[in-house]
Structures are given as structure tokens and as C-alpha cells.
Design a protein around this nucleic acid. Structure first.
Lengths: 262, 262
DNA sequence: CGGCGGCTTGAGGTTGGTCAAGGCATGTGG
DNA sequence: CCACATGCCTTGACCAACCTCAAGCCGCCG
């Protein structure tokens, strides 16, 4: 439960228009809608203000007013909601190339909280500046629509997970989603990735208690479907896990504006 | 479980640029980003092709290729996924002003199914035409980003529902969400709305079995929090229901591009 | 009038939550 | 360098919640 501490704003190097294409978010946008030089220059200007947050710092607090986006360059965070009962539901694991503040800060008061799981480097973007960019650069705005569609698809899949899948199926699906998303940004090997959450945290993602996550993960290990070593998760039998969790990676795939043949 | 039947395409009146502002989707977009005459003309052209679907018809079938949006003018539908176990998870209840095909048809193959709950009238929009519009009209594209942010927020709230809330809380939250969304499009009175789903359908939304939905609804009725008469649901004690479901309507509120004061 | 879909209610069994205790690794301060 | 604290994993016992199955009922539509 993230300690409420103050955020640090630290100026870092200004990425030039040349290097901006390497930014994980820009890469994603560019894959949906081919961006031109002016788009890239405008994005580079948007991403001028680098910031750093430390482990367990709150980046967005539900109910507070903070109309700014934080674009993740490095590190992990969770987007979540705390209920009166004390339960926590993690809505998404935020990783490089994701946008913290989508959709929370499009509202007058944030509708979700976001806390850093480890040290992170971000780019701070006032929502107004983002809106101006969208209005000025239709290609960027359109790429953001596609970005948002993928975000919605991930959320929808998460609803299925929490609502109707069996505990082992939920875990299988969640682990494969993490692997696939991390591979897409070059942060995972063929079958192994870094799991930034504790078992209790995983439970807060998929809607199970900590002890039950432990039991179900133990079963998956015993059946040689996965292996774990600290925060390292290895998928040992991808086919079986996919069948178990009914995982189809399509919803995480690249989404070009048009189909290859059209 | 929607019967798989063929869709009918029926040409209806072409809305002129004058009446287009009355379209429920255009109203919503215009509230986020003020649209000009050219935007409206372009939208009117996009919404030329009216179609009608009948109760229980499939509009989108998971796994099929159908790169088109269907913009809802009238009627209800469900966006859902069927699992191998036979269970169904409804991801969203689609209502007038919503876009069927977001996000399903942004992918090569649809990632969710959509079935009409009753007769509907829609506007058929090829995805390519939609993409062209976004690229040509930055204000429309930007409004769509805001539209998508609200969609994502609704999904996120649904994850919390299915993952961590108690059964009665889930129902309270779901009923208030339906009331509020319907009020926003002028389809509900102060405290009463039309529930297009059966109790089993409600169970498939919130992740409970049909019988358990029945029992929990009976409790809410006994406690005078709600009343039901056929498909009519009346919220009798909104304050108590809001407290029970921890419902804050903020995530459904209007999202203007800029804050009033900025 | 007959059939079907949906609501209602009941009985029984399993799942998974809660609580609790112990172990292990890591990191910190004396 | 050791002692201790902390966080996380692991395991067990117990129990309530919720699912499943089943039967009866009502109202609507053909």
C-alpha cells in the first residue's frame, strides 16, 4: 500500500528528434500510424521534461486533481483502486511505453491511483499540452485512438479473467499476458520475464487471496508449466498454459491502421 | 447465447449536417471537443449507411474478420466472450451513442463478440473510412481519444467489480452505472431505467450465477434499496446504494478537453 | 392451449477466503 | 560483522460463501 510521499522532478536530457523514435511510446504509436518528421518533432517537444520517481511513491492518487500524463520510459507501476473493505484491485500493471494518467487524469479528479513498484523514469506531460498536440497533429491523435483501443482490449480481457475464469486459468492468462507485453517492448526473453509483483500483488490483479495464489502457483510449478526463481518467471510449457488460460495473444498484437492487403 | 444468424443491411435516411448534432455519438464527441461545421459534415458523411439488426443477432463474432464499426443509434447489445467451460463473461452493455467494434474490430480478427439484446438501429462505418476521418479531422480524432478514455475507465471499474467487490456491492454498482449511463443519453428518468438483461445476463456481467443474482437482488428489494417490475428497475435509495457499491459517478461524467478554469 | 424462457426457491457440496504460525532471505543499524 | 527487523513465501485448519443441480411456477407468445 504505497507510502504517500512527495514526487521529485528532475530534469534529464532532452531527446532530440533523431533519438525520439527510440522512445517506447513513440515506437508503439509509429507502428499504428506512420508518423512524419513534424510529428516526431512535436512528440520530442512533448517529452522534454524527464522525471524520476522512487519505489513505492504515489504517482497519481485517486480523487486528487492532477491533470498530467506521465509517460513511462523505465520501470513498473500499478494502477489500482482501494475499497473501503481494505481490499485492493489492481487494474493494470504499467510498464515502459505505457501512459500513466490514461484514463485517470482525463477526469477532473483522478479515478484511480498509480504507485511505482520500483524506481522509474518518466516523462511529465501536462494534459493541456497533450491535447494541443492531438489537435495539431491528426496522425498522433489517430495513433492515440489505436493505442487506447489496445488499452481497452487489455482491460476487457482482464474483466474476463476476474469474472469467469478459474484461479489456475487466471494465473495462466496473467502470466502469459505479462510475458507477451514484455516481449513486445524487448524486456523479456523467449520464455522468461521479470515479475514486479509479490504473490499478494498478483492476487490483487486476478482477484484471489495471497495464500491461494501461492497454492495455485505451486500446482503450476508441480505440473512443470512454469518455474519461478525470485522475481524471475519462466514459462516452461507455453502450449499447455495457453490452453489452460485460453490465452490468444491477438489482443496484444500490433495494430496497424490498415490491413497489409488493403 | 446469441443465435448465429445473418445480418440485414437496410438503407435508411441520410442525416443531413443540420440534424447530425442530434446523433447520440456526435453529441458525446462534441461535448469533449467542440466540433466545427466541417467536422460535422464529415461525420454526417461517415454516418450515411444506416442498418438494422434484430434481437439476438450477432453483430460481431469473435475470431471473425470484420473491419467495420457499428455506431448505435437505438437499442442495446452485449459485448462478451464465451469460454470453453461454457461460461460467458459480458464485458460491457452497449447502448445508444456507443461504438460496436471498439475495440474488437481494430484487430485483424475480432477479439470479442457482440450480440443484439433487442432490435437495434446502427450506422455502418468501415474502419478505413473511420481512420481516414481521424487523419483528416484532428478534432474528431482527439474527441475519439477522450471517448476511448471514458470507455477504458468504465472497463477498469468493471474489473474492480468482478475482482474484489462483494456480490451485493457488484449489483449495486452495476445498477447505478446503468442508471447513470442511461440518464446521460436521456434514456432514463430520475430513478428508473430499462434493464435489457435477464438475471442470468446480469450474472454474466458481474461474475455471479443466475440464482445468486436472484437472491442478492431479493435482498436489495427487501431492504428497500431497489424495486423491480419486469425489466423496469427503480433505485429507491440512491444514497444507500452508492455507499454499498462505493459508486462514484465521476468516471461517467462529461470530460471536456480543458477544465472550466484553464 | 401448450411450450418456452425466465424467475424463484431449496439442498448440498466445493472452493477459496480468513486467520495464524513458521521459515527464509534481505537489508540495516549498532 | 552480527543482531534484529521486515517483507514475503509457505503451509495448515476451519468455515462461509457461492456454485451446481433440480424442481416448480409464472407469464408471454405462438
Amino acid at each position: 500500500m504505497g507510502a504517500s510521499s512527495r514526487r521529485r522532478l528532475i530534469a534529464v536530457e532532452k531527446p532530440g528528434a533523431s533519438s525520439i523514435r527510440a522512445h517506447p511510446l513513440v515506437t508503439r504509436l509509429d507502428h499504428s500510424v506512420a508518423l512524419d518528421e513534424e510529428d516526431l518533432t512535436a512528440l520530442a517537444r512533448l517529452l522534454e521534461r524527464g522525471t524520476v520517481v522512487r519505489k513505492a511513491e504515489d504517482i497519481i492518487v485517486e480523487g486528487y486533481k492532477d491533470r498530467a500524463l506521465h509517460i513511462v520510459e523505465r520501470g513498473f507501476a500499478i494502477r489500482y483502486k482501494l475499497l473501503h473493505s481494505g481490499k485492493r484491485q489492481i487494474v493494470n500493471v504499467v510498464m515502459p511505453g505505457d501512459i500513466i494518467g490514461f484514463p485517470a487524469c482525463f477526469y477532473e479528479h483522478a479515478v484511480f491511483s498509480v504507485t511505482a513498484l520500483g524506481d522509474m523514469s518518466l516523462h511529465y506531460v501536462p494534459l493541456d499540452a497533450f491535447a494541443d498536440l492531438c489537435l495539431a497533429r491528426a496522425r498522433v491523435a489517430t495513433a492515440m485512438v489505436w493505442f487506447a483501443a489496445r488499452e481497452a482490449a487489455i482491460y476487457a480481457e482482464h474483466i474476463v479473467d476476474a469474472g469467469r475464469r478459474e484461479p489456475r486459468e487466471r494465473l495462466a492468462h496473467f502470466l502469459l499476458e505479462m510475458l507477451t507485453r514484455l516481449q513486445a517492448i524487448g524486456d523479456a526473453s523467449e520464455d522468461t520475464f521479470f515479475m514486479p509483483l509479490s504473490q499478494e500483488g498478483i492476487g490483487d490483479v486476478v482477484g484471489l487471496s495471497g495464500p491461494h495464489v501461492n497454492r495455485m502457483l505451486a500446482e503450476l510449478k508441480a505440473e512443470r508449466l512454469i518455474a519461478m526463481n525470485g522475481h524471475e518467471v519462466t514459462i516452461r510449457d507455453r502450449a499447455a498454459l495457453q490452453a489452460l488460460g485460453e490465452f490468444r495473444s491477438a489482443y496484444l498484437a500490433r495494430m496497424p491502421l490498415r490491413q497489409p492487403g488493403s
